[in-house]
Amino acid sequence: MSATITLADVLDDAAILSLEHQLHLGEVIGSHSWNVDLREQRFVFTGDRDLTCSRVHLLGSAAPGPGSWLWAWANPTDYPEPLTELSARVRDFGRQHGIPELASAEVPFGAVPGGPAEPAFEPARVAALLLDAAKVVSGSWTSYHAEVGGGTRAAFLIEHPDFRLPPPAFPRVMRVLQQSLAELPLHDHRRALYGYARGRGLGAAFDPEGTRLAITSPDFSIDVEFDQHNRIAGINAKTTSGN
């Protein structure tokens, strides 16, 4: 990524790969309850499948009262440093690239691209967006956020070997792309699809004019055409594996 990027760019880089990880998380844990011990740095799911995460990272919290997000590195509570170190890495990235929403201790909801204009907006939206930004910086792609009282939502990145995605298969990749285009607030489709393909280990190459993107694997190919606004104008996909 270049030095001149915005939070909207980072969110596009994250959006589709993040969605696939969250869909996979749901497949792994099913119907569940959760519990976290921040002092012991222990995050546990119980329900359809009992699972203890191998690592947990507190990224921050979104509170409806002030209508703002507070990064974990700036929280006055004396949390263990390993619990908040990823939030500090996000801060340093924000400072390096001049992205105030990542570098500032507290971020008003209305300052987040795709977030709400009113502080009364559900904090879940802002928590999800800023978790996505943190995924690009940290390389940790599975997240969880939940209410912890008074409408405030705590946001975590969580790790476990079972959260790793399976190899990309044609039906799954197409389903993820279709769901992303229908549901996600992408600012730049061209950037988002390229970022997803690269993050998924797929081939990704633009034509000389930059208006077509070829996404390739040994088993399938997806050719995407973009309009002058970097939005998708057409998709042609085919598989060679019979899937």
Rank of each mutant, 00 (worst) to 15 (best):
R164P: 01
I158L: 14
V126Q: 15
Y196T: 02
S33N: 11
R200E: 03
A62M: 08
P100W: 01
G26C: 00
N243Q: 15
W141P: 07
E106C: 06
V148S: 11
G203K: 06
V36R: 05
R175H: 03
P166Y: 02
S68G: 13
A169Y: 03
P218T: 14
V44G: 01
T46E: 15
P185I: 06
E27Y: 00
D9C: 01
F45T: 09
P116W: 13
P208A: 07
A154F: 09
I99T: 11
W71C: 00
V137C: 00
T211Q: 04
I235A: 05
F121V: 10
L7I: 11
H189S: 07
E106S: 09
E106L: 01
G149M: 11
P123H: 12
D223E: 12
F220Q: 11
R198Y: 10
D188K: 05
E122R: 13
D13V: 12
F206V: 02
T4R: 09
G94R: 12
L23N: 13
H32F: 09
Y194A: 13
L25K: 14
T216G: 06
L58H: 15
A72S: 10
D48N: 14
L193D: 09
R91N: 12
L213P: 04
S18N: 14
E81G: 00
W69C: 07
S217V: 06
F163Q: 08
H187A: 15
M1F: 06
E101T: 05
P116T: 03
A205P: 00
P168N: 12
A182C: 00
A182W: 00
L86H: 01
N243V: 09
L7P: 08
T142A: 05
V10F: 02
D12W: 08
L193H: 04
H24D: 05
R231E: 14
E225V: 11
L177P: 00
A103Y: 09
Y196F: 15
D13R: 13
P208W: 08
H229S: 12
L186G: 04
E85C: 14
P167G: 07
G114A: 07
Q22M: 14
A154D: 08
G139Q: 03
P161K: 10
V10D: 08
C53Y: 10
S104A: 14
A14E: 09
A124S: 14
P123C: 12
A88M: 08
H57G: 03
Q228Y: 12
P208R: 11
Q179K: 15
Y196L: 03
A133K: 05
V176G: 03
E85Q: 15
V148F: 07
F156L: 07
A124D: 14
G201A: 10
W141I: 01
Q22R: 13
P218F: 09
D48M: 07
H57C: 03
P218K: 09
P168F: 02
G150H: 05
R164C: 07
E147C: 00
S241F: 01
Q22N: 14
G203Y: 11
G115M: 04
L23R: 15
L130G: 02
Y194R: 13
F206P: 02
A197F: 07
I232P: 01
P100T: 02
